[in-house]
């Protein structure tokens, strides 16, 4: 190999210029560098392709429904299974015939009940899980530290993070819905299931944020004669608030997209039900339900619901990133 370390004293003027440009590197090293760079670009493209294809298909299939003026305000039109009891409508909707393309244009497309239901369940879940999760994390990091209870809670939170979301649905179905019979299925039950899902995420992300608050701030506060709880409220939480907010919003975004725990416990409606009691529906439940129903109209509704959900989650994520960026600057 010609690539030996050149003696220092020999490099002056143009030689040094050439050396600093990399002219003395061997061809083999340059080639390896190019190959490695190329492989990394390929790997990135391979990772990006599914994302782009998925995004493109959701947008291209869903945009008509979402852009129709009635989408955000009107009830969900009856399709598939939901109107099996009312068979006459089927022909009106163009079901059952192979040439039912374009049938949805004669129907008022709407998804308002699911949008309301999604906001309701997610806000309910957030109101349950975020305060509880933050207080739990404060206990873990400011009080429990490494005692047996804190270690146990931390372990259980990790285990809960790994529990499949459908298990949370079954759990709430068993302890909340079944005892209440037909009235049990409600947005509140879905909020409970989602809260179970969010709680460990909020606890662990908040604890990480509290860990980032330097100990010397706690010491400074303690040295002024401050109780731990007041130090936590006045110094630690304000210093970590942006990180806690963005962590919590990511948990909210994740809960908004959950399907399995929701379809178990929420029931089914096609009109807006802006209350926690009584059957309700969410976007994720609609995606699942309409896809099961079959037919062009139902497919349009499912794609539209998917795009709506992506938009809502994207909005939440952007808000979370905006807040966390402010956090990084300070």
């Amino acid at each position: 190999m010609s690539a030996t370390i050149p003696a220092r004293s020999t490099q002056t003027g143009p030689d040094m210029q050439e050396a600093l440009r990399g002219g003395t590197l061997s061809g083999g090293r340059k080639a390896k560098n190019h190959v490695a760079s190329g492989l990394m670009v390929l790997a990135f493209l391979a990772a990006a392709i599914p994302l782009v294809v998925m995004g493109a298909s959701v947008v291209s299939q869903g945009y008509r429904a979402v852009l129709s003026g009635s989408w955000w305000t009107q009830p969900i039109p009856e399709t598939g299974r939901s109107d099996l009891a009312n068979n006459q409508n089927l022909s009106d909707l163009g079901f059952g015939t192979p040439s039912d393309a374009g049938a949805s244009s004669s129907v008022v497309l709407g998804m308002a009940p699911a949008i309301v239901g999604t906001l309701l369940t997610v806000l309910g879940a957030a109101a349950l899980a975020i305060p509880l999760g933050i207080m739990g994390a404060v206990y873990l990091h400011e009080y429990g530290k490494n005692n047996w209870l804190a270690k146990f809670i931390r372990f259980m939170a990790d285990v809960m993070t790994g529990v499949p979301s459908v298990v949370m649905g079954v759990f709430i179905y068993t302890i909340w819905v079944l005892p209440r019979g037909v009235d049990g299925k409600s947005a509140w039950a879905a909020a409970l299931a989602l809260a179970c899902l969010m709680l460990p995420i909020v606890v662990r992300s908040t604890e990480e944020m509290l860990r980032l608050v330097p100990d010397n701030l706690r010491e400074a506060s303690a040295a002024l004669g401050t109780h731990t709880w007041k130090t936590t409220v006045k110094v630690v939480l304000p210093a970590a608030i942006a990180g806690i907010t963005s962590g919590s919003l990511l948990a909210v975004a994740r809960a908004a997209g959950e399907t399995a725990p929701v379809v178990f416990v929420i029931g089914f409606v096609t009109t807006v039900n802006a209350s926690f009691s009584g059957a309700n529906t969410t976007l994720s439940a609609q995606i699942y339900g309409q896809q099961q129903a079959g037919g062009v109209l139902a497919q349009d509704l499912a794609w539209g619901a998917a795009l709506t959900l992506v938009i809502i989650v994207l909005a939440l994520t952007l808000i979370a990133r905006r807040i966390s960026r402010r956090f990084e600057l300070s």
Binding site: A220, L224, T226, A239
Partner: peptide
């Protein structure tokens, strides 16, 4: 806590709270 109200401390590394100058002193 009562002890620390009477015996204050200044640390090796300046550690002001991430608050305004006024709020640091008024804390």
């Amino acid at each position: 806590v009562e002890v620390r109200r009477r015996i204050g401390m200044v640390f090796q590394k300046p550690n002001p709270f991430p608050k305004s100058i006024y709020e640091n002193v008024a804390y």
